[in-house]
């Protein structure tokens, strides 16, 4: 029987949706495998169509994007009720992703910067988004922007996760195959990815790592073959799940961790700090700390995609 699926996005960029489209001719196979009942980027179904469905009507929902406002949460909960399997698609749904970096600030700091202070904003009357307002006598509503960006599993029960920013297209295709063939692993599993660290599939040569200095990417040219980390460039490979196809590494760019942590690691960024400390030449705590202190912008380096899911979570209110 043909699958019934929904595809939706919360605080996202549309890249996960495009990754589905980037399966190219395999899209025709996906169309044979599944009928789509919601997909805002590509089809015209409305929330009212989803509300009219019986609970559990959809076999699976692929939800990309984090939960940033009350609408994201409301639709996530609605889709959870309508779906037999809720699947977090991509780093934002799984970990908060890049938009989760907003947790470094309060809601008010974000709103002020965007609507009042940014160099390209002209807003003489200081108009701010309001949850309810009256325009010429007409009542209008907007969702509430949350103080904290949340991951999908912080608001609803998530059955499976397809990681990546964006997930590799063929990985999405193979994950859909698992649903269609009724071959899904145990609930809670990551699908469409590897189960080892990126370093295990990375083609760069690995030797003894004894880092004496941290380099930013413009400070020296990396050599073509050696592991980035060994050369002093921060690379999140040791703390990141494999499955991306080393696409950044192959483009001469150290990994920033979009495929998220391995199983049983709760905080990818902290895992990376500990991996880094263990490959430094200094062995005394104070010397290790001194070298770690030379990392510029550690929070957005180690938790580039995972701040909202980390034990740090957000700036203190």
């Amino acid at each position: 029987m043909k699958l019934k699926i929904g595809i939706y996005w919360g605080a996202a960029c549309g890249g996960c949706d495009v990754a589905i489209l980037d399966t190219h001719e395999k899209l025709l196979e996906i169309a044979d495998m599944a009928d789509i009942y919601l997909w805002p980027i590509a089809m015209d179904f409305k929330y009212s169509d989803v509300r009219a469905m019986k609970d559990g009507y959809l076999d699976a929902v692929l939800f990309s994007g984090g939960v940033r406002n009350s609408e994201n949460e409301e639709i996530a909960k609605l889709l959870r009720r309508k779906a037999k399997a809720m699947i977090a698609l991509g780093a934002c749904a799984q970990l908060g992703g890049v938009p989760g970096l907003a947790n470094m600030y309060t809601r008010e700091e974000v709103l002020r910067r965007v609507y009042l202070e940014s160099e390209s904003t002209t807003n003489e009357k200081g108009i701010m988004p309001l949850e309810s307002s009256k325009e010429d006598g007409f009542d209008l509503e907007l969702p509430r922007l949350y103080n904290t960006v949340k991951t999908l599993n912080q608001v609803v029960d998530v059955d499976y996760t397809i990681p990546g920013c964006p997930p590799a297209s063929l990985q999405i295709y193979s994950a859909l195959g698992l649903i269609a063939d009724d071959m899904l692993p145990k609930k809670g599993s990551v699908i469409g990815a590897g189960d080892r660290a990126l370093c295990d599939e990375c083609a760069r040569k690995k030797g003894e790592k004894t880092i004496t200095r941290i380099y930013r990417t413009h400070e020296k040219l990396p050599d073509a073959e050696t592991c980035f980390l060994e050369q002093g460039f921060i690379c999140l490979g040791p703390a990141t799940r494999s499955g991306c196809g080393s696409r950044c590494i192959k483009s001469w760019t150290p990994c920033r961790g979009c495929y998220g942590p391995l199983d049983d690691v709760s905080d990818q960024g902290i895992k990376m700090v500990s991996a880094l400390a263990s490959v430094m030449e200094p062995k005394e705590e104070k010397d290790i700390n001194a070298l770690l202190d030379t990392v510029v912008d550690p929070l957005r380096t180690f938790h580039r995609f995972s701040l909202a899911s980390s034990i740090l979570r957000r700036k203190k209110a």
Partner: peptide
Amino acid sequence: QIPELRGFEKFVEGLPVEE
């Protein structure tokens, strides 16, 4: 109405330029 906002304008402040 545009009901979404992520806040890139804020959280890219101070980000190392190469990133």
